[in-house]
């Protein structure tokens, strides 16, 4: 590989979560050196909880510990006044042509992809999940240079391989989705502080005041109620698979551990430094606690899908653990809300 090409100025950054990673790396490439993964996550109000009713994904409950795909990049860029270009395509040829054009310009771009056909992923991880993100930062003969933020190192994909994952099908089909920051104005500390405040306020709203009972902190209670019924309703085998799915959504690669709660704790720690406000640092501890509790619940759930725990009382105990987590998170967000930041 020729290391003198201009695109090599792009620096790969490994992050816990792919969309945070793309956001961080692309903004740093534009000169915003202060950008970190926790900051992108927090400004983008990334923390969430939802169990989408009546929907199953991979034959399990549709649960997410983070906000909807695409929102973090969009919100973080917007709050910093960064102009963004995003495109989707109805046909693969146009998508390829546009990507080639940006690569030739030397502009690293984010691409949404599906992981089922993503050749460098281990087979065990290749489900039909379409909200993975990676950066294309150059081309070397017939291979695209790929920076996948969840990986330690960069990799490559051939044109057919890349096109295939950009046109994966199913829920959240990427349709060749490509995005990148266009114009970056000078950013002051004051703008960063504003972005932090609006990120926190939006996250408080999403977790505490979202209508319905299946999202935000109340969504955790919703799942807790479901777990109590799963053993009778679905049978032990299926109920175990459902618990396994929760653990995967919570702990798998991309979460930073503890269902993104540690990542949010890290954000609040950074936020406290920017705002020079120790109260925020104290609330960071609450999210560390919540993350630890999520992990404790995962260990208990593992007892079920490993076949060690089989009784209804085990399901009840897991459900109770989730209720405790809900209280910790509810209180933490109420504290954040009570700070009246930005007022």
């Amino acid at each position: 590989m020729n290391i003198d090409t201009p695109t090599d100025a792009f620096r790969h950054i490994q992050t816990a979560h792919c969309e945070n990673g793309v956001t961080t790396a692309l903004l740093r490439h534009q000169g915003l050196e202060f950008m970190t993964e926790p900051l992108a996550f927090g400004m983008g109000s990334g923390l969430f909880y939802i169990q989408i009713p009546f929907l199953t994904i991979n034959n399990g409950p549709a649960i997410s510990f983070r906000t909807m795909p695409g929102a973090i990049f969009k919100r973080t860029c917007k709050s910093l006044g960064v102009e963004v270009t995003r495109k989707k395509f109805s046909n693969a040829a146009a998508a390829e042509a546009f990507l080639d054009y940006k690569v030739k310009e030397g502009v690293p771009v984010g691409c949404q992809v599906g992981v089922f056909h993503l050749t460098y992923f281990p087979k065990e991880y290749r489900f039909h999940f379409n909200a993975h993100n990676l950066i294309v930062y150059g081309q070397d003969e017939d291979r695209y240079l790929i920076s996948d933020p969840v990986m330690e190192d960069v990799t490559t994909l051939t044109r057919p391989e890349l096109t295939r994952v950009r046109f994966a099908q199913g829920p959240l089909a990427p349709k060749g989705h490509i995005y990148y920051p266009e114009k970056v104005k000078p950013i002051t500390d004051e703008m960063i502080r504003k972005g932090i405040v609006s990120g926190i306020r939006r996250n408080v709203r999403d977790m505490l005041r979202i209508p319905g009972n299946f999202a935000g902190v109340n969504g955790i209670r919703h799942t807790s109620g479901n777990i109590r019924k799963w053993r009778d309703k679905l049978g032990l085998k299926k109920a175990s698979l459902y618990l396994g799915q929760i653990v995967r959504m919570q702990e798998e690669i991309g979460t930073g551990g503890g269902g993104f709660r540690f990542l949010y704790g890290a954000f609040l720690e950074e936020a406290a430094a920017y705002m020079q406000d120790d109260r925020i640092a104290n609330i960071s501890e609450d999210f560390t606690k919540a993350g630890d509790m999520w992990r404790a619940s995962a260990i208990k759930m593992a007892g079920v899908y490993k076949g060690r725990l089989t009784e209804q009382k085990d399901f009840n105990e897991i459900a109770d653990m989730l209720l405790d987590i809900r209280l910790v998170e509810k209180e933490a967000f109420q504290k954040l809300s009570g700070l009246n930041l930005g007022k």
Binding site: A16, P38, N58, N59, G60, E124, Y125, E152, S240, L241, L243, G244, Q245, V247, R248, E251, E252, G257, F262, G265, A266, E269, S284, R295, A298, I299, M301, A302, Y305, K306
Partner: peptide, 24 residues
């Protein structure tokens, strides 16, 4: 008591979850 990043090789709790998904 400050946050930092660290690299993990994996965790049996989530490996077992993935294994059980594949059994299914």
């Amino acid at each position: 008591g400050k946050y930092e990043t660290a690299l993990s090789n994996g965790w049996d709790v989530k490996k077992d979850a993935l294994d059980s998904a594949w059994v299914g």
